[in-house]
């Protein structure tokens, strides 16, 4: 979810799932599991609340989630889908990573997000479509993995302001993204710093739009490209072979006057190819 446009999804999993495989029979472990479940529900509620109440009509950049994979060996990978929605927005993200060779992997991330009812042409809002490819290296640890990816993404950003007025931009982003992930049999969390260079190779806009919107667009035209450090955080529970996680991406520092979405939070369900292999061994 974007700019305080947070995301949520149906959460009806139970920690009792795969209990034997993940050795959750001990009392303290159960308590920890239920604590995690409560925490996840709390985050879900927060995400849903924020999504209902905080949403910009138009924005000219929104960070997609920072995809931080856990890879252990050749053949590992994951594929996930994240969603967020609220009264005034809807977003879907898809992400995948695959390691064709030991220590090397490539990733694909996609984002589509909509604010307002811009899906209908006459209404007001913003739509982003964004796809990026990355190549990187990883090193697995006893409980997790470190990785660094670099790549490029490109997308289209369309805003409609009503009265036939619109703006449309091609956005391109180069990135380098070092990240760390911790993983155990129940829980996964991690962080990454995505260093982005954001440019707007093409753009067009109606001139007869709100002066603040126009000023933002002209400032983008004058100041682009932008070098944006972005922080990615993820935390979730392992429901082997999947992971249900909340992901937060944040642009920092703030970039005032550009109508950039600073935050993206969503709930992602990821299928991890290597999880079934890694988790039993790590839980010993």
């Amino acid at each position: 979810m974007i700019v305080g446009n947070v995301q949520c999804s149906i959460f009806n999993q139970q920690c009792s799932m795969n209990r034997e495989k993940r050795s959750l029979s001990s009392i303290p472990t159960k308590i920890l599991c239920y604590t995690m479940l409560r925490l996840a529900l709390l985050l879900f509620a927060f995400v849903f609340y924020a999504g209902q109440h905080a949403c910009a009509q138009h924005f000219y950049y929104a960070p997609n989630s920072v995809h931080i994979p856990v890879l252990g060996q050749k053949g590992d990978g994951d594929a996930g889908v994240g969603m967020s929605w609220g009264s005034n927005y809807f977003a879907v993200e898809a992400a995948g990573v695959y390691s064709p060779k030991q220590h090397w992997a490539f990733m694909v991330n996609a984002l589509t997000t909509t604010t307002g009812e811009v899906r209908r042409k006459e209404d007001v809002g913003t739509v982003i479509r964004f796809l990026e490819l990355g190549l990187g290296a990883y090193q697995s640890f006893e409980r997790g993995a470190g990785s660094i990816f670099a790549g490029v993404g490109q997308g289209n950003l369309f805003s409609h302001y009503g009265g036939g007025n619109f703006s449309q931009f091609t956005i391109r982003r180069y990135f380098v993204q070092p990240g760390l992930m911790y993983e155990d049999q129940m829980f996964r969390c991690g962080l990454a710093l995505r260093l982005s260079r954001l440019s707007y190779p093409k753009g067009e806009s109606s001139f007869d739009i709100d002066v603040n919107e126009l000023n933002a667009i002209r400032k983008i035209e004058a100041d682009a490209p932008f070098f944006l450090p972005e922080l990615g955080l993820t935390g979730g529970i392992v429901i082997a072979p999947c992971v249900l996680a909340i992901q937060l991406a944040s642009v920092f520092p703030d970039v005032p006057g550009l109508n950039f979405a600073r935050f993206n939070m969503n709930l992602t369900l990821t299928y991890d190819f290597g999880l079934m292999r890694r988790v039993p061994s790590k839980s010993k």
């Binding site: 707007y200 190779p201 753009g203 067009e204 806009s205 001139f207 983008i220 682009a224 490209p225």
Partner: peptide, 8 residues
């Protein structure tokens, strides 16, 4: 490459 937008 600097951005160069068209305005309508």
């Amino acid at each position: 490459k600097k951005a160069d937008f068209d305005y309508y």
